[in-house]
């Protein structure tokens, strides 16, 4: 089963809608709740990153009997130093985002911790694609 969501940029109000939708789908499919939680947290973190840093983007993915694959694709500024971005506590989020409790520098580390596979391809000025996958069995 394939899925596809659009993430609006700059709208903190809409952040999390795609994650919530996917979570509902996974529940309907009877996926184990601990896996759903990992998928939902990872996808929300990635979705927030898209809103904060990349003016939105789109999410596509597939659910198979073995795994859940999620691709988050944006045309944002790209990540200058990926190793630094993966460091807990490092963030380039705006003051506004920080005031709302985002920008703790925990987003990518949280995704890594909750997923079975994380791959980020990024190019400055072109965009970033975050590929996350989760084993079901």
């Amino acid at each position: 089963m394939k899925f596809d969501y659009i993430v609006e940029g700059g709208e903190f109000i809409n952040a999390g809608i795609a994650s919530a939708k996917l979570k509902k789908v996974l529940k309907q499919l009877g996926i184990a709740s601990d896996i759903i939680r990992k998928v939902a947290i990872s996808m929300y973190e990635a979705e927030i990153n898209m809103v904060i840093h990349a003016d939105g983007g789109h999410i596509e993915g597939e659910i198979t009997p073995e795994k859940i694959e999620v691709l988050l694709i944006d045309k944002g500024p790209g990540i200058e130093d990926l190793d630094l971005a993966m460091t807990e506590g490092y963030s380039t989020a705006s003051k506004q985002a920080r005031e709302m409790g985002f920008g703790a520098g925990m987003g990518l580390p949280n995704i890594k911790r909750n997923s079975d596979h994380l791959n980020i391809s990024t190019k400055l000025g072109v965009g970033t694609t975050v590929h996350i996958s989760f084993k079901i069995t």
Partner: peptide
């Protein structure tokens, strides 16, 4: 703000 609801739901 509204994002605490999203976090509350997800967790």
């Amino acid at each position: 703000h509204i994002n605490i609801i999203a976090v509350g739901m997800l967790v």
